[in-house]
Design a protein around this nucleic acid. Structure first.
Length: 447
RNA sequence: UCCUCGAUAGCUCAAUUCGGCAGAGCGGGCGGCUGUUAACCGCUAGGUUCUAGGUUCGAGUCCUAGUCGAGGAGCCA
């Protein structure tokens, strides 16, 4: 019996006869010779058919086989440097071919660049293109690496609710939905507050799921529905948080490199840049970061840059600031100690400097910007009440959250990491919408 | 919410500073080719130039309004 193989393992079958099941991605016919580039989900492999090797009539069908036709191909595997594909360098000589379905001839995705609108309208088919296939394979590995590292480092996976009663952080806009007799519920934009409850039972936890933000952001870094992993730890301060984050991110990058090199290469990613991503990561304070940006602003001659890089102590960083800052580093860089006024209500103040809080963002290199945001949380019940009042947040909604500080409060910290931004950085792609199978943006909920 | 840009064949795009016959490549169809890499060669079909007005002898092109989209600011992961 001929083994049915996956293309990603084809190197193990050189010289053997195998069966490959998949779809015709491209067809090139040259008279009595035809090349089919077949994808099977695990890779792309070239299948070569000679007219003389096949039953009369069958070759004529293959020559006319439309793109995306489903086929079962059987024949010997050969190593051949000329053969394209992913991983490439191998081909299957066609001895038998079963045409499961000859696809319709009006398949809309051409083997070349498409406009954004067209590609997104056809996302259900665009997913079949090698670039999208490669990116989403990297995404799956990023997710797997996230869970693997947390699960093997004492974290307990906790699912936090997606339907929530109110804003976790009062600032951003929420999607709302009717909720029986209770009035309205809101789609979660973070599981953090629930995780702060969870740590008092489990010590170290993480939640991982979709989050929703009705922000009217229209940039290459934003989705309205995106995936976020949020670890939270009891007995953890800001320094320990940064140590943990760099181990975590380093692990994810190295595992992607180990398992997804063919995919990254097919995307044209510069692997040497990722190979450098190992702990420790540089750490700079917000104060120093402001000074660095101010200096860069003074050094640039570009008037547009000068305007974009305007900064004063107390302002949050915009994308241009982050990009300028990270361009100075080859690794992700921690920026810690942001002004209290630009951050959420629950962040622990810096000892002796109430205008600064114990927050930290991790900014990815090559212009990819913020991939994690975290902080040490306020552990004092009195201070937390004070902050709720300052932010004009209702005590009633936060009653349960305040109780966490009354029954065994401890220093604790956590962060959130955006999966799509991380995947975009790994893959070196331009736009976050390619880092999720079916992107949701302010202008798109189809398909 | 603001700024900038865009919309022409199924797709990607042309169509001359300054208005004058609607074009090419890919994809489709037909034919050719035993090593193609988004193959190549020949033939062929394919158009309400986003919508509505306006200027003009004449508008894809100029003007007005609108629709849709893009990426940037703000906000954020």
């Amino acid at each position: 019996m001929t083994p049915i193989i996956r293309v990603e393992q084809i190197a193990d079958y050189v010289g053997q006869e195998v069966t490959v099941r998949g779809w015709v991605y491209n067809r090139t016919d040259k008279g009595k010779l035809v090349f089919l580039l077949v994808r099977d989900g695990s890779g792309f492999v070239q299948c070569v058919a000679f007219k003389g090797d096949l039953e009369p009539g069958l070759f004529d069908q293959i020559v006319r086989l439309p793109q995306e036709s489903s086929v079962v191909v059987t024949g010997p595997v050969r190593a051949d440097q000329r053969a394209p594909g992913i991983p490439g360098g191998f081909e299957v000589g066609v001895k038998q071919i079963e045409i499961v379905q000859a696809a319709d001839e009006d398949y809309p995705m051409a083997l070349k660049e498409h406009g954004v609108d067209f590609a997104l309208d056809n996302r259900h088919l665009w997913l079949r293109m090698p670039s999208q296939w490669a990116i989403l394979r990297v995404r799956a590995t990023v997710i797997s690496a996230i869970r693997e590292w947390l699960d093997s480092n004492g974290f307990v996976g906790m699912d936090t609710p997606i339907l929530t009663p109110a804003a976790c952080e009062g600032t951003t806009t929420l999607f709302e939905t009717p909720y029986f007799d209770e009035g309205k519920a809101y789609l979660a934009q973070s599981g953090q507050l629930y995780n702060e409850a969870n740590i008092f039972s489990f010590g170290k936890v993480y939640c991982f799921g979709p989050t929703f933000r009705a922000e009217k952001s229209k940039t290459r870094r934003h989705l309205t529905e995106f995936w976020m992993v949020e670890p939270e730890m009891a007995f953890c301060d800001l320094d320990q948080l940064m140590e943990l984050e760099e181990q975590f991110v380093g692990h994810i990058v190295q595992r992607v490199l180990k398992e997804r090199t063919p995919e990254l290469k097919s995307l044209g990613r510069d692997l040497s840049k990722l190979e450098k991503i190992t702990p420790p990561f540089p750490r700079i304070s917000y104060d120093d970061a402001v000074a660095m940006i101010d200096q860069m602003r003074a050094e640039t001659d570009d008037p547009e840059q000068k305007e974009l890089l305007k900064i004063e102590w107390g302002m949050d960083f915009g994308a241009p600031h982050e990009t300028a800052l990270t361009n100075r580093f080859e690794k992700p860089v921690f920026v810690y100690g942001y002004p209290t006024q630009v951050k959420a209500f629950y962040m622990e103040p810096w000892p002796g400097r109430p205008e600064v809080c114990k927050s930290v963002d991790l900014l990815a290199p090559e212009g990819y910007g913020e991939i994690t945001g975290g902080s040490e949380r306020i552990s004092s019940p009195d201070l937390l009440v004070e902050r709720l009042d300052q932010h004009k947040l209702p005590h009633e909604a936060f009653k349960w959250y305040l109780e966490l500080r009354r029954f065994g409060s401890v220093p604790h910290s956590g962060f959130g990491m955006g999966v799509e931004r991380t995947v975009s950085w790994m893959c070196g792609i331009e736009h976050i919408r390619e880092a999720i199978p079916f992107p949701r943006t302010i202008k798109r909920v189809y398909p």
